[in-house]
């Protein structure tokens, strides 16, 4: 592999990894706020892709408007899901909620299949097809757009958590719900917000992914790789999730050209297993032994 090819693969890996990272961010947001793992995060992204498809290709909206409408409607969907399904489960074991989101994933996939059909769709963005040429390296604008978009989202999130009061509340609520209630934080509001935010991010990730991947009801399964990333990051750390997501994307791309297919397909999981075996709580673990 020469330098140019290396760079080429690296860029594709990075942009793929950014999508994983964005979905992983959604996992971690919900986990941090509610200690619940949302297994349907990938499927939320899939729904986001279909909604974007509807806005852009069916209704013919301009790209930027479509992007914003997609994120907004996804946030709304996230909030609705939280109200309808998650709120009744407050106080139940986390395993039960995990199973609930698994069931939600089934429903979302069937829903998408019956509304938009099973044939793969695609959407274009203003950068589609354009290529930036640096020497022998060809960079697709779509790939660059994914990276820039991810960076923007991360900066926005970072600022939000640093300066908005609700960000602090979220931290508090995740560590001790009862104590949070006692100091006047509305746990319900925090949970609602976490779901809305992470669904919105999932929608954004969907729009970013759409030009480089086909849209079909099964595309949400890449959420599992993102889940692996979130776990590697330690589930409690937003930067950890993002970094691990990007790492997984890069590793996967390189595995695909250097290793036999079976190993390449399994590479994200192998990486995750190895890391978990060495550090059972993930790289940026934040769990300590229960106090007695």
């Amino acid at each position: 592999m020469d330098g140019a090819q290396f760079l080429q693969v690296l860029i594709i890996g990075l942009s793929q990894g950014c999508v994983y990272g964005l979905i992983a961010l959604g996992f971690v947001l919900i986990y941090k706020a509610t200690e619940v793992v949302n297994f349907a995060q990938g499927d939320l992204m899939m729904i986001g892709m279909f909604i974007a498809f509807t806005f852009l290709n069916v209704l013919g909206m301009p790209y930027w408007l479509g992007l914003m409408c997609t994120c907004a409607s996804m946030a709304l969907i996230g909030a609705l899901l939280e109200r309808a399904l998650i709120r009744p489960m407050i106080g139940e074991p986390t395993f039960a909620v995990l199973m609930l989101t698994v069931g939600l994933g089934f429903i979302l996939r069937s829903f998408a299949g019956s509304v938009w059909g099973a044939d793969p769709k695609s959407i274009h963005n203003p950068f589609s097809g354009e290529v930036l040429r640096l020497g022998e390296v060809f960079l697709g604008f779509e790939n660059i757009a994914v990276m820039v978009g991810t960076a923007l989202v991360c900066i926005a999130l970072g600022l939000y958590f640093r300066y908005a009061r609700i960000g602090v509340s979220m931290q508090a609520a995740s560590q001790n719900q009862l104590a949070a209630v006692l100091v006047g934080i509305s746990v319900n509001r925090v949970t609602l917000l976490a779901w809305a935010l992470s669904a919105g991010i999932a929608g954004f990730a969907g729009v970013m992914l759409a030009p480089v991947s086909l849209i079909d009801p099964q595309v949400g399964f890449i959420g599992i790789k993102a889940f692996a990333a979130a776990i590697i990051g330690g589930l409690g750390s937003l930067p950890g999730a993002l970094i691990a997501g990007i790492a997984i994307g890069v590793i996967e791309q390189f595995a695909q050209i250097t290793l036999p297919t079976s190993l390449a397909t399994a590479s994200p999981y192998l990486v995750m297993l190895i890391i978990l075996i060495v550090r059972p709580g993930g790289l940026f673990a934040s769990v300590q032994r229960k106090r007695v």
């Binding site: 931290q171 001790n176 719900q177 409690g236 934040s286 769990v287």
Partner: peptide, 8 residues
Amino acid sequence: FLSTERLR
């Protein structure tokens, strides 16, 4: 109510 052993 949920209370965890997480530090962060």
